[in-house]
């Protein structure tokens, strides 16, 4: 399990989905949180991806997934 922590739900274990490269050198990495499905690029401004600097209004509560509505129920 990776140590990368999700800036949205504060859970560890984020995956590396892609690396942007130029001339063989890694420019940025796209991570994805398997818990809350947030994807981010490590080059984004801290206001969007910084733990503690990102707006709490957009946090996802990993302990309480029932609050999120399931669309298209029969």
């Amino acid at each position: 399990m990776s140590k990368t922590v999700c800036p949205r739900c504060a859970t560890g274990g984020a995956l590396d989905d892609y690396q942007g490269k130029e001339g063989g050198k890694v420019v940025w990495t796209i991570h994805r949180c398997p818990t809350c499905c947030f994807s981010w690029r490590d080059s984004e401004p801290a206001s969007a991806i910084g733990i503690g600097t990102r707006s709490a209004d957009f946090a996802v509560d990993a302990a309480n997934f029932d609050r999120y509505v399931k669309i298209l129920q029969q």
């Binding site: 949205r8 892609y18 796209i30 499905c37 994807s39 981010w40 690029r41 984004e44 969007a48 957009f58």
Partner: peptide, 19 residues
Amino acid sequence: INLYDVLPVYRINEFDGGF
């Protein structure tokens, strides 16, 4: 298949949940 190989995606609005 890796969609990121083909699509130069970016976050449209700052607090979108992904690309």
